[in-house]
Design a protein around this nucleic acid. Structure first.
Lengths: 248, 248
DNA sequence: CGGGAACTGTCAGCGAGGTGACACCATCGG
DNA sequence: CCGATGGTGTCACCTCGCTGACAGTTCCCG
C-alpha cells in the first residue's frame, strides 16, 4: 500500500525515478528542511525513524488538507511540492493567514496543544506532501530527543516569521506591506529574479485588503518597472526598489 | 551571590517570605506556567534541574530587558510579575508586537535560531523575572527531554496566539480589533470583570493605529456601557457585548 | 503642596482604501 | 473550437482613520 502511494506521489514530482530508497531520501530532505541544523543535528537513526513513518500523500488543486467543516484526518503534513493556502473566513471577506511552500510544516500545532486551529487549509495547485499520523508523531518526539529538539527550532522559526509578519502589517502603508509580502513569498527561480505564483485575490486576502486596492498598487509597481504582472503571477524585476519601498 | 539576588527579587513580590525552598517553588511555578502539562509532564528531577539554574532578576519600570541598542545579556526570561512591552520602531510610529505578562517567556527564540529578534523589550511597571543563561538553557534542553518537549508546547502555544492575533487584525474594522485586544489582554481580577492596565498610547501601538482613533472607539464603548475608562486602565463591564463586537 | 511629566479628550481637514459594478482576457475541459 | 470559469483592469462614490494641534486631567516626585 505504501509503495503504491509513493509512486503516485512521485509521478508529478519527478516522473520515473521511483527506487527503493525513496523513503530515506525524503526523510533526509525533511531533515534538511525542517528547522535548523545548527545546534540540532539528526543522527542516522533519527532519519531512519522518520523514513519509516512518513506517508506520502498527493492532493489535487483545490482539495482541502483539513477544514473547519471537513475536520478530516489529523496529523502532521510536510509540503514536498506545490502550495497550500491557510485561510479563515472571519467577518466579511476571507483572510489568508499564510501560504505553505515546499519544506513547510502544518498540523503539528493542533497536536501539540490538543486544540483545533481556527483556519482551513486547501491546496492551491497540485501538492505532494508527506503525512505523519498523530501517534507516530508523538512517538518520534518521545523516542528521539534530537527530533524533538529539531522540531522546537522549526516551530521557533515559524513564530519568528509570524512576528515579522505582524510588524510588517501593523500601521504601514499598503505599498510597503505589498512590497514586503512579494519579497517574502517569492519563489526564487534559477534565473535570478523571483516569482510569486498566486492570484491577486489571494495576495489581497493575505494583507486583509480589497482586491482593487491591491491591483492599484501592483500596477503602480509595474509602471515603475519594479515588477511584471502576469496571469496568477507576479515577477519581481527590481528587488532593491521593493526593499526600499518596504522600509519606507 | 545567587541568594542575595534572590532576596532582592522577592523583596517586592512577597516581602519577608524568603525561605530556602524558594528556588524549588519558583521552578514548580515555571513548570505549571510554561507550555501545557498534558502530553508533556515534568518529572521531579526535571523540576529540580530547573530550580538549580533559574536566576531571579528584578527590573524597575522603564528598564530594558534587551534592546536594539543595548544588546544586553542574552538568555531566557520568564516573567514572574509585572508587564514587559515588546516594541519595534519601524517606519513612523512605534508598534507594540506584544505585552508579556506573568508566566510568559521571552528570549528563547533568538537562542534557538541563533539570530536577534527585531524588537526591543522594556519593563512597563516593576518586573520580577527568572533568567536562564544561554548555556544553561541549551543544557536543560539537551539533558532533559521532558523539558524540551514541554518547551515545544510553549512555543507552539505562542505561535497559535500569534496566528490568532493576525486573524484578529487583518481587514477588520477598528471596533472589532479593539474589542478583541481588550478581551485578550485583560488581567482577570478576582472580582469577576477584567482590567487592562495599559495606557491608550500602548493599546494604539498594539493595533498599529493612531491614539485619537483608538480613544474615539474607546469612548464609544464607554458611552454604551461596555467598558469603564480610567487613567492608564480600561475595566471591562459587558464582556458579552465586546465578544459580539469582536466577531461582528 | 506645587510643578513637570505623562495621559486623556476632542476637533477640523484630508487622503487612503473600501464598495460594488462592469468590461475584458487567460485557461481549460469538452 | 467554443463556452464556462475565474482572473485582471478600472471606475465613481463614500467612509474610516490619520494628521497635528491644543486643552484638560491625573500622577508622581521633590
Amino acid at each position: 500500500m505504501r509503495l503504491s502511494r509513493w509512486s503516485e506521489a512521485l509521478r508529478t514530482a519527478r516522473a520515473g525515478s521511483v527506487t527503493a530508497d525513496a523513503p530515506v531520501r525524503d526523510a533526509a530532505w525533511v531533515a534538511r528542511c525542517v528547522g535548523r541544523g545548527t545546534n540540532a543535528p539528526l543522527a542516522p537513526a533519527d532519519v531512519a525513524a522518520l523514513a519509516a513513518t512518513l506517508q506520502p500523500v498527493e492532493l489535487a488543486a483545490g482539495q482541502p488538507l483539513f477544514g473547519a467543516s471537513t475536520r478530516s484526518e489529523p496529523g502532521v503534513w510536510i509540503i514536498r511540492s506545490g502550495h497550500v493556502e491557510l485561510s479563515v473566513t472571519a467577518g466579511r471577506n476571507p483572510v489568508v493567514v499564510g501560504v505553505l511552500r515546499p519544506g513547510d510544516v502544518e498540523g503539528d500545532i493542533p497536536l501539540l496543544l490538543g486544540l483545533a486551529l481556527p483556519y482551513a487549509a486547501r491546496a492551491v495547485d497540485a501538492v505532494t506532501c508527506l503525512h505523519l499520523r498523530p501517534a507516530d508523531f508523538e512517538d518520534l518526539l518521545a523516542r528521539h530527543p534530537a527530533i524533538a529538539r529539531r522540531w522546537l527550532s522549526s516551530v521557533a522559526q515559524r513564530l519568528a516569521a509570524s512576528h515579522e509578519r505582524l510588524i510588517a502589517l501593523l500601521g504601514r502603508p499598503l505599498p510597503a506591506q505589498l512590497a514586503g509580502l512579494l519579497l517574502d513569498e517569492a519563489d526564487h527561480d534559477p534565473d535570478g529574479g523571483g516569482v510569486v505564483r498566486l492570484p491577486q485575490r489571494t495576495l489581497a486576502a493575505m494583507l486583509g485588503v480589497a482586491r482593487p486596492s491591491l491591483n492599484k498598487i501592483l500596477k503602480d509597481f509595474e509602471r515603475n518597472g519594479h515588477v511584471e504582472v502576469g496571469y496568477s503571477a507576479v515577477r519581481l524585476i527590481d528587488v532593491g526598489a521593493l526593499q526600499r519601498i518596504r522600509s519606507a
